[in-house]
């Protein structure tokens, strides 16, 4: 191995790691606020990528119908859950959020898609199509389970993951897609050549992390989310609508997942079921970071990315084995550090 290969591998690792870092951040976010271990995160990546790729070819992506369907389901669930306390205002809001919004997005997509408006508009449109699915999912699957144990929520998350993979196959078909990048510039710094798309990924990741930091530190919504994360009941007692916090957390996670998908779509061929492994690597990072700390999770994600790129160079067949066993020394360390008698939550 020479220095050029080394640099390429590191670069690859950092770019992939940046994506894992985004996913790890949103996993930590969702877990902290709702205690849901968000296994379907990977599906948002795949949906984002495939929606973007469809728009890129001028087609109306199948996911708009899924969006409408999920919105309708969320509407029905919302009406059912609030059937005793429903007011005219709340009903209107619910219908606006879950029926009118997806219809509007669908109409917009149907109008814009054939005109091929360019990558940025397409990317934004893809985000608009995929992101609302997350809060709809929260309303349909998780809101009724808000008080359940972490394990029940985890199993429910697995159920949602299964359903979403199946739906992905229905709406996107079994073929993989690849999309145009944000930039086809190739920059070279001495021995290192850097693709424009890679810079986009790393840059957006950094910006998004900064934005999330600002959101949690300085905005009332962000603080409400953190309060919910620390103590649900306490947050509710001081007037924070914890269900609303769940919706916000899921929306953020959906947006981050979809964005990650849009970002990786030009780098690799994405299939309807690609997301799961990508999401799992985000998990590895989040677990290493302890599902609690954002900076630790982000650093761990870069590490996972680099381990992955090096192991695909040396032992590509065992890439996944190596990446997932990276967890084990970390788990070991955590378990040796933890006290002998640990109280379950």
């Amino acid at each position: 191995m020479d220095a050029t290969i080394l640099l390429i591998l590191v670069q690859d690792g950092v770019v992939n790691g940046a994506i894992y870092a985004l996913l790890a951040l949103s996993l930590v976010l969702v877990f902290a606020v709702t205690r849901v271990i968000f296994i379907p995160q990977g599906e948002f990546v795949a949906y984002g990528a495939l929606t973007y790729a469809a728009l890129d070819t001028g087609q109306l992506p199948g996911s708009v119908w899924l969006l409408c369907g999920l919105g309708l389901a969320a509407c029905v669930c919302g009406l059912w859950q609030q059937r005793r306390t429903l007011t005219a205002g709340a009903t209107t809001r619910l219908v606006l959020q879950t029926v009118v919004l997806p219809a509007a997005i669908t109409a917009l997509a149907a109008f814009v898609a054939p005109r091929k408006p360019g990558v940025l508009i397409e990317a934004l449109l893809a985000l608009a199509i995929v992101t609302p699915m997350a809060p709809y999912l929260y309303r349909v699957a998780f809101q009724a389970l808000a008080e359940a144990s972490v394990l029940v929520l985890l199993i429910a998350a697995v159920g949602v993951h299964l359903a979403m993979v199946g739906l992905g196959l229905v709406f996107f078909g079994p073929e993989g897609s690849r999309a145009t990048g944000f930039s086809d510039a190739v920059l070279s710094f001495g021995a290192l050549t850097v693709q424009g798309q890679a810079l986009w990924i790393v840059g957006l990741t950094v910006v998004l992390m900064g934005a999330l930091y600002g959101f949690f530190e300085f905005t009332l919504f962000g603080k409400a989310l953190r309060a919910t994360a620390v103590n649900r009941l306490g947050a509710r007692l001081v007037g924070i609508a914890t269900a609303q916090s769940g919706v916000i957390a899921f929306t953020l996670a959906g947006a981050i997942g979809a964005l990650s998908g849009v970002l990786i779509a030009p780098l690799t061929t994405v299939y309807y079921d690609t997301g799961f492994l990508v999401g799992l690597k985000g998990f590895t990072a989040a677990i290493i970071g302890g599902l609690a700390s954002y900076p630790a999770a982000a650093l761990a994600a870069i590490l996972v990315g680099i381990v992955e790129s090096f192991s695909s160079f040396w032992a590509s067949a065992f890439k996944e084995v190596i990446v997932f066993t990276v967890i084990i020394p970390v788990l070991l360390w955590r378990s040796l550090r933890s006290t002998a008698v640990e109280e379950d939550e």
Partner: peptide, 8 residues
């Protein structure tokens, strides 16, 4: 799909 939905 049905499986996941039933599980939830």
């Amino acid at each position: 799909i049905v499986f996941g939905a039933i599980l939830v």
